[in-house]
Nucleic acid binder design. Sequence first.
DNA 1: GTATTGGCTGACGCTGCGTCAACCGCAAGG
DNA 2: CCTTGCGGTTGACGCAGCGTCAGCCAATAC
Lengths: 252, 252
Amino acid sequence: MDVWTTAEVARLAGVSARTLRHYDAIGLLEPASHGHGGLRRYGRPELLRLQQILLFKRLGLRLDTVASILEGDLEPVAALRRHAAELDAERSRLDRLAATVAATIRQLEGGQPMAPETWFSGLDPATEAQHRDEARRRWGQAVVERAWTTLQALSPEARRAIPEAFNDINTRLAAHHAAGAPTDDPAVQAVTADHYRLIAAHWGDDPTAEAYRGLGALYTDDPRFKATYDQVGDGFADYMRAAMDAYADANL
Amino acid sequence: MDVWTTAEVARLAGVSARTLRHYDAIGLLEPASHGHGGLRRYGRPELLRLQQILLFKRLGLRLDTVASILEGDLEPVAALRRHAAELDAERSRLDRLAATVAATIRQLEGGQPMAPETWFSGLDPATEAQHRDEARRRWGQAVVERAWTTLQALSPEARRAIPEAFNDINTRLAAHHAAGAPTDDPAVQAVTADHYRLIAAHWGDDPTAEAYRGLGALYTDDPRFKATYDQVGDGFADYMRAAMDAYADANL
DNA sequence: GTATTGGCTGACGCTGCGTCAACCGCAAGG
DNA sequence: CCTTGCGGTTGACGCAGCGTCAGCCAATAC
């Protein structure tokens, strides 16, 4: 009884026959010999090797790494150390991910269908930087930059309150827009004043005329905002910006 | 400027053009229209949709899940909750893995090339159980079972010391085996006595003759041990068991 | 005229097998 | 003798999410 078939080895080692064939195919564990009809026959050395393979695999090493170790091309301890570091990195990545997911859940629960102001908070640094570059290139104004970063820096509570409030204002303004009211119409300017106060509430100090115009520019020039606002109605982003400009002209 | 090409959208959103084509291929984000030569043309609604896609993707959701959410077939909050649970499970899996890897590193550092006694400590429960079933079926003796479980229950320090000691004994015994010395040869029995004492040191009380014979059976009948010992020399496992039986006959 | 950009459509590669599909050999039972 | 069934074999697709050629077309810049 020194030789075992595929199914026997599989049972002994607790793996599937398919796995053994796979290991043969990739050269990780070749049978001692082939019998009639290509039957795989494994001997004791193969059993031993399989056990070692399973040991390392159980630790999460990739099969090619396991192969390198068993061929003596890789120091087991070194490989495991590197693997441990990778595990650690992956774990902290999951930690951050979980935190972000939790935050998003809270945000979704607290707000309406998600306002664009909240969609982009917390993009990854690379994307974020790219967006800012794009913005700078387009608007070329430091004030717009400040409007954006300020929006980003809002407290979590403020963020949770934002979607509703914006939704409210957008709805009211959309009504005037649909009715064809000019942007300097008193009713429109009243809504815009609410908008200004909403912004100001999270601005630190009251936004200057320049800052408020910058925010208006954000609505029309940043595709992320523009796309959203134009879904409210065709040309709504432009309408909103015009109303904001008018407000700045008259009041700031 | 209401329409963008693949590369433009890619730049705006910070993804690759290939990704956009992929999303088109799987129906996740189809362009608004196709221009001359099949050029993809994206409009604002597509930009918006892409932003939502990227938001959910960034949270680690699979693309088909994202699709379900955007199609309204899946509640975003519910999906995120489930995802959070999965993240949590995965994280604790990584925790356990990292612990196992660390333990293995310690073991490898403390010992020689890894003795078989340590290889199988800490197999996953299913495999472990299967091995024990196999063992019971083969030996049908509770004492063998006890020999095995006792080996498994050793303290970490003892485990670290074991490989060296076993290696030493194996080397000495292998010399006699190669020289063709009978197993009841006094020199062979002297080495066997050392082996007995080594085992006894971790046994709790001194192993009985029955227990020691059971351990010998483990060496020849468990493929995990047999394969290893037979690598020392052909028939070495049998030789060792015979020496152990002889020792038990004469001294226990 | 041609070199450069960009865009297009395949199609393979990666990881570790699970899962058919199609076929063969051997032994027991009708 | 034939069927059934078990266990073995070799392909080959599928999965997730694109990266990465390869080969071809069109418009633009020099």
